[in-house]
């Protein structure tokens, strides 16, 4: 076992906290940021007008941007708790364990971000009568992608961070 330096331990602590809050808040903000970006970049709406329209439709029936954000945030909040419990409770003495866990969690988080981002972009760029159904299915898909992303991250971790031979 290799002892963890205080610097490594401190970095892991920051990483855990950032990962936890980043995913809990980022999951909520991601769909809203994409909505605003699509309005500004794709539909060429000035940012101030796009922002006003966005806040106007946060709780409007038929739009409910708030609930869309909340639905997307659910799996990210679950993932944030997983980061806290899985990485935060990792033994600090052996850096290999938290590092491998961090890579597993990074794989899951990245996969979720890409999936959620792509889905929201698709719904906004190619509007369809049934498009809103994607918002209902997305949390389930994100939750299902979590173990796959985690597994992939762990495989990469095994390759990049091999166990030191005795």
């Amino acid at each position: 076992m290799i002892a963890t330096t205080p610097e490594t331990s401190s970095r892991l602590r920051v990483l855990t906290r950032l990962g936890f809050w980043g995913h809990a808040i980022g999951g909520l903000l991601l769909p809203w940021a994409i909505m605003l970006a699509v309005e500004v970049v794709v539909h060429q709406v000035p940012l101030a007008r796009a922002w006003r329209s966005f806040t106007l439709h946060l709780f409007a029936p038929g739009y409910n941007f708030f609930l869309i954000g909340l639905l997307t945030a659910v799996p990210f909040v679950i993932f944030a708790v997983l980061i806290l419990l899985h990485l935060g409770a990792a033994p600090a003495q052996d850096p290999l364990i938290p590092r491998r866990r961090a890579l597993g969690l990074a794989g899951a988080g990245l996969g979720m971000l890409v999936l959620a981002g792509w889905t929201h972009l698709e719904v906004l760029l190619h509007p369809d009568a049934q498009g809103a159904l994607a918002y209902l299915y997305l949390p389930v898909i994100l939750l299902a992608s979590m173990p796959i992303g985690y597994g992939s991250g762990r495989v990469i971790a095994r390759i990049l961070l091999p166990k030191a031979s005795a």
Partner: peptide, 24 residues
């Protein structure tokens, strides 16, 4: 933070973060 903690975050820190999430 507690640099001598056996885990990356202390149980107290984990609880406080969870409480923060509940508050959020």
């Amino acid at each position: 933070g507690n640099a001598s903690s056996p885990t990356v975050l202390t149980p107290r820190e984990i609880t406080l973060h969870l409480l923060g999430l509940v508050l959020f």
